[in-house]
Simulated scan of single mutants.
Amino acid sequence: MLITGAGGGLGSAAARVFAERGWQVFAADLVPPEPAPNQTPLTLDVTSTASVSAAIDTVAAGVPDGLGCVVNFAGVLGVGPLVEIEEDLLRRVLDVNVLGTYRVNKAAFPLLRAGGGRILNISSEVGWQRALPLNGPYAMSKHAIEAYSDALRRELMFVGVPVVVIQPGPFRTELTGGAAKALNAAVRPGSPFEALTARTARLAGRAAAGADPAELTEVIWTAATTARPRRRYSVRPDRGRRFLHHLPTPVADAMLRRTLGG
């Protein structure tokens, strides 16, 4: 098994559980975790095709008969007003979250096919919900993962490689915990979005606790090991966001205007 984004947070938690339960895990990240029983650290930059190729070569040497699963956890947060966000930041969010997933799956495909394996793409609740203000860059990337995963699943079903999407809500990680700080850092002094950003950051700070990562890890275990995995697993979506998503769009917009407009 190859898990990207395994240097910390949810990816690290998943890597530990699979290793403890007997899987041979390649735990990959820019700064990978320490070696552990059944867990091999692997330096990987998903934005570099050369780095991805080198990592897959290492995996192939360790599992010459093929790979049972790839879990694409590698991702970064991107927030801020879309008419102000720097192009380099937006490009990085899409490069890591979308193209990084594409690069890893493309390189790992021959090993997955040989090993009768499957792909787990980590999306988010924001991948299926209508995007909220100041969350555009991240939402764009996760909506793209949803579309990519649908197309990939419908291609790879013809060659026997299942593709599964995992859609976590807020869980306790550095990513969710740093959302308020990231929002405050994203707005320029004198921006017309200063007040909106401050109010949104306060709400993000209140929601930062999130659920226990162990719950998500168990869902990933099921998706990786069950004989017939679902196409999608939605895991603890935020109730407020889910409610807002299902409202008629004009009603939801009016509610956001009242809540965030001051």
Rank of each mutant, 00 (worst) to 15 (best):
E125V: 06
E125A: 08
V126S: 13
W128M: 03
A131W: 06
L132R: 14
L134K: 01
N135I: 06
N135Y: 13
N135M: 14
G136R: 06
P137K: 11
Y138T: 10
Y138G: 05
M140Q: 07
S141E: 05
K142L: 10
H143K: 03
S149D: 00
D150Q: 10
L156A: 13
M157K: 15
V159S: 12
G160V: 00
G160K: 07
V161R: 09
V163S: 10
Q167M: 00
Q167I: 08
P168M: 02
G169V: 02
P170R: 12
F171S: 00
R172P: 02
E174W: 00
L175V: 13
A179F: 06
A180C: 11
K181Y: 03
K181C: 01
N184V: 03
A186F: 05
V187L: 00
P189W: 04
S191K: 02
P192F: 03
P192V: 15
P192W: 13
P192Q: 08
P192S: 14
E194W: 10
T197N: 02
A198E: 14
A198L: 04
A201V: 10
R202Y: 06
A204Q: 07
A207V: 06
A214L: 05
E215Q: 15
E215I: 06
T217V: 15
E218G: 07
V219T: 05
W221A: 08
T222A: 14
A224C: 07
T225W: 07
R228W: 01
R231T: 13
R231V: 13
V235D: 02
R239W: 10
G240L: 13
G240I: 08
